[in-house]
Simulated scan of single mutants.
Amino acid sequence: MAKDAEVAETYSSKDYQDPPPAPLFDSDELTKWSFYRALIAEFIATLLFLYITVLTVIGYNSQTDTKKTGTDACGGVGILGIAWAFGGMIFILVYCTAGISGGHINPAVTFGLFLARKVSLVRAVMYMLAQCLGAICGCGLVKAFQKSYYNNYGGGANRLAAGYNKGTGLGAEIIGTFVLVYTVFSATDPKRNARDSHVPVLAPLPIGFAVFMVHLATIPITGTGINPARSFGAAVIYNKDKAWDDQWIFWVGPFIGAAIAAFYHQYILRAGAAKALGSFRSTA
């Protein structure tokens, strides 16, 4: 009996409490340095993300340009390398900024967390602005350092590939963003954080791998957006018609995917709807 009591006490001490929902409007945030520090972290992280990943894309396009003499059509880092660049940078940047801003680095992630009441409306809107500005500045740095390569090799801008219709592109963005945002919710679930102490340390790893896997699947279709700031920043600096023609896909798709992921995790897996109705209590 004593042993059972000890086990029960141990389990109880490791049990979890869901944090209270973030207020919809929280003007007090605007008076705190921690809020502006988080905005700076999101801005710099998104800038670095776009700088490294767009350079990788442009470098690959340059190395495989069959119109240039001495180039190898099968050279460069390949799609696998591009996917690693995106996934690896997300892993690094989420690890670095998670304790400051939550490590969103993506308006779709911020939108999903807002729908789940993890962040306030004020924070969500300001995060998205910081992310978009960071993406523009990151692409701007790439163009400033390598203008000819940037203009000649597409500027890393997302576009719907030839042979695919807009519905296919939209579906790819919805499902890809769902995978990412669902992973974010799962990796940061307070229940798992409380019962598996190693989860918070490892959280950036599955998030980065989710980005990596989605890129492998959707680079041939849309170039992989799943991040409206990434697509918007590249389009603003590259500023060619094709980059803007399908821009709506890279906003509507990720936001729909993020909304579905938020609903699925909060109301299906975490039985939020059932708890609200009081019909039964999840024992998962």
Rank of each mutant, 00 (worst) to 15 (best):
L202F: 15
T71E: 11
V142T: 02
G233K: 01
W244N: 09
L129S: 06
S148E: 15
T46A: 11
I174W: 02
V184L: 07
K147R: 15
G75C: 13
A45S: 15
K67R: 10
F255V: 06
N239F: 12
K242I: 13
T168H: 08
T110Q: 02
A98Y: 12
V54M: 10
P23V: 07
V77Y: 12
L180G: 05
A2W: 13
D28F: 11
N239P: 13
D28R: 12
A258H: 08
S34E: 15
G87W: 12
P204F: 03
A157P: 07
T69D: 13
P19N: 03
T222M: 06
F263D: 10
V77D: 05
C74S: 14
L80S: 08
G76M: 08
R230S: 01
Q146H: 14
F185M: 11
A116K: 03
M89D: 04
L170F: 09
N193I: 08
E173A: 05
G176H: 00
I52G: 14
G169E: 10
I105T: 06
V122L: 15
I175F: 15
F185A: 11
M1G: 06
E42N: 14
I82K: 01
T177A: 07
D246N: 13
A229S: 10
L205W: 00
F178S: 08
G138T: 01
A8T: 09
L39A: 11
Y238A: 04
S186P: 03
G112R: 00
V119C: 08
L269W: 00
V211Q: 07
Y153I: 11
P206V: 01
D241C: 06
L269V: 09
G112F: 08
M1K: 03
Q247E: 13
V199F: 07
F209I: 15
N158G: 06
T177W: 04
G134L: 07
K3A: 14
Y149S: 11
A124T: 04
I260K: 03
D18P: 04
A73F: 06
A243K: 02
V236G: 02
N151F: 12
G257N: 06
Y150A: 09
Y267H: 14
G156Y: 04
L160C: 01
T31C: 05
S13A: 07
A276D: 15
T64K: 07
D245K: 10
V236R: 05
Q146T: 11
Y51F: 15
